[in-house]
């Protein structure tokens, strides 16, 4: 049986696992954006917080993913469902690129522009919403893009704790020493990563100020 036949015969299962994969990546990216963008804004405005926050996000990033899944397993509510746990872990990994992208984007707004906006009498929130965020948006999005691409890859490992996703085919293939099964999980995962990278990159270019 070759790979095409496998996909043809198991299209329902592959689609199901792809959806699970997308869901884990999507929810975790959303959470990472909801936490990471405000944090990035905060440290861009409060330089003193910059090192501790980026430092903490950096440390999380260095924990091997299998170890992180393992650490979180005994946590009560989380450990109940593997997929919750996987989403939390992916969120934690996605934080660093999101925070750093936001920080870089906001700090990158030309000081003269910020000064004149302030001098015109903009309030802090007007400055944020009308000047800083629009001008930083493409850089923020590039951070999100990196986070998504990392998550698509990491989410395959979530299958090790039974969270589902395309990793399930890979792990099953590893256990059964079946290369086709491994590829059946790896190829859609790689395609997802490329697709996400490309489409977010496109949006990012559209948002980039001249």
């Amino acid at each position: 049986m070759n790979l095409f036949q496998f996909f043809a015969q198991n299209s329902g299962q592959v689609a199901q696992l792809t959806l699970e994969h997308l869901w884990m990546v999507g929810i975790s990216t959303l959470l990472a954006a909801l936490i990471g963008i405000p944090l990035g804004i905060l440290i861009a405005h409060r330089p003193l917080l910059n090192r501790p926050v980026l430092g903490a996000a950096n440390i999380i990033q260095t924990i091997p993913s299998l170890a992180l899944f393992g650490f979180l397993l005994p946590v009560p509510w989380l450990g109940d469902r593997a997929e919750r746990l996987a989403i939390l872990a992916l969120t934690l990994y996605a934080l660093l690129p999101v925070i750093r992208g936001t920080y870089t984007g906001i700090r990158g707004v030309e000081p003269a522009v910020v000064e004149s906006a302030r001098g015109m009498g903009m309030t802090d929130s007007q400055l944020l919403w009308r000047v800083e965020l629009p001008l930083a948006m493409s850089v923020i999005l590039s951070g999100v893009r990196v986070a998504v691409v990392i998550s698509v890859g990491l989410a395959t490992i979530a299958a090790a704790i039974g969270a589902g996703g395309l990793g399930e085919l890979i792990f099953r293939g590893l256990a059964m020493v079946n290369n086709q099964l491994i590829l059946a999980g790896a190829i859609p995962a790689a395609l997802l990563a490329v697709l996400a990278d490309f489409s977010l990159g496109w949006v990012e270019r559209r948002l980039r100020p001249q």
Binding site: E110, A112, V113, S116, A117, G119, R130, L135, P209
Partner: peptide, 14 residues
């Protein structure tokens, strides 16, 4: 209430 023209102009690029 104070008009301000800065040295680097500082127009909003967007």
């Amino acid at each position: 209430g104070i008009g301000y023209v800065i040295q680097e102009i500082g127009l909003l690029p967007h």
